[in-house]
């Protein structure tokens, strides 16, 4: 009951609802700990964790590193731009070389969907997926749900709209899986070109009008346009996207209820969300960042507890 049902965190789809609740409960304790004068616990002092970042990251990388250090784990960092990957080394070779240095757990971000799973299948380490291409970003989804749960008490019956570039967003897919497991209703909203054709098979509503989506939801999770993953142009211009899907105070003030705003970052201020909304009391954006450390501490703690066990 208390143990996670998985040895790795690759996809939210692999988790049971109980696992999510165990992570939330553990994260609550870690949140209390990181608000103490001394924010560190000695739990993982015999564990070494490698952060393998084959793709750029600010928040996730810092958040994982801080989580690991606050658990007293030894941490080694790797980023593709300054490594032998540029000299032609394969992913498995790079990982196995790092594992030979007696690393216990790997946190990996990679531009290719399925990369984390590839490591699980070809090495014998425990892996946490910190984002694999357009596939999944499970820790982000868990911290988003944790932040919503903190505000509303529970997710069951809540209406959550995920708005923006659904097609290229790993945050969207992980969030859909997590929210559905926890009993929330989910809607995706964005231009037709940025919504995968068969997404309704995941049990989500599809909407193309921002105002309609906002009228429906209790929580709006605003996503960035992932221009770096768009091989063709999906909409005429950023200006036009902003006019149709940008969240500003005027739209919010016309709603008859108060909605809560999430954003996984990085924010493109003035594109998908205005500064006024992002910095308002409706926004949980900075809570998400704080909760990110606590949630990642919980995930690492629970997975590390399974190391060297059957």
């Amino acid at each position: 009951m208390n143990d996670l049902s998985v040895k790795h965190l690759i996809s939210i789809n692999d988790l049971e609802t109980n696992d999510l609740n165990t992570i939330f409960k553990t994260a609550e304790s870690f949140k209390e700990i990181i608000n103490r004068p001394i924010k560190k616990v000695p739990t993982l002092r015999d564990i070494t964790i490698a952060n393998l970042f084959f793709e750029n990251s600010t928040r996730t990388k810092l958040s994982f590193e801080l989580a690991e250090k606050r658990l007293s784990a030894d941490v080694i960092n790797f980023s593709a731009s300054s490594s032998s990957v540029k000299k032609g080394e394969t992913l498995i070779d790079t990982t196995n070389n790092i594992l030979s240095m007696k690393v216990d757990l790997v946190v990996m971000r990679h531009p290719h969907p399925g990369a984390a799973n590839h490591i699980v299948n070809n090495t014998n380490t425990s892996v946490i997926n910190a984002g694999d291409g357009t596939h999944e970003h499970p820790t982000q989804a868990i911290l988003d749900c944790f932040s919503i749960r903190e505000k509303f008490g529970e997710l069951k019956g809540l209406k959550v709209a995920i708005i923006g570039d659904i097609k290229h967003s790993r945050v969207a897919l992980s969030n859909i899986y997590a929210l559905k497991k926890l009993g929330a209703e989910v809607m995706v909203c964005g231009p037709t070109t940025l919504i995968p054709k068969y997404i309704h098979h995941l049990g989500v509503k599809v909407e193309h009008n921002l105002t309609n989506a906002l009228k429906w939801c209790d929580v709006a999770n605003m996503l960035r346009i992932q221009l770096e993953r768009q091989e063709i142009q999906y909409f005429p211009s950023i200006r036009e996207y902003t006019r149709q899907y940008g969240l500003n105070m005027q739209i919010i003030s016309e709603l008859s209820k108060e909605i809560t705003i999430l954003h996984p970052g990085p924010i493109n201020r003035g594109v998908e969300i205005t500064s006024e909304v992002a910095d308002s009391s409706r926004s949980l954006i900075l809570d998400q960042v704080e909760n990110g450390v606590a949630v990642r501490m919980a995930i690492i703690y629970l997975l590390a507890g399974r190391l060297n066990r059957a």
Binding site: D3, V41, L307
Partner: peptide
């Protein structure tokens, strides 16, 4: 005191903390 114990990974299951 869960995270300060000296038997982490020596038990069958990771311990779930109580409230401080």
């Amino acid at each position: 005191i869960t995270f300060f114990r000296d038997d982490f990974r020596r038990k069958e299951k990771p311990l779930i903390p109580s409230v401080t």
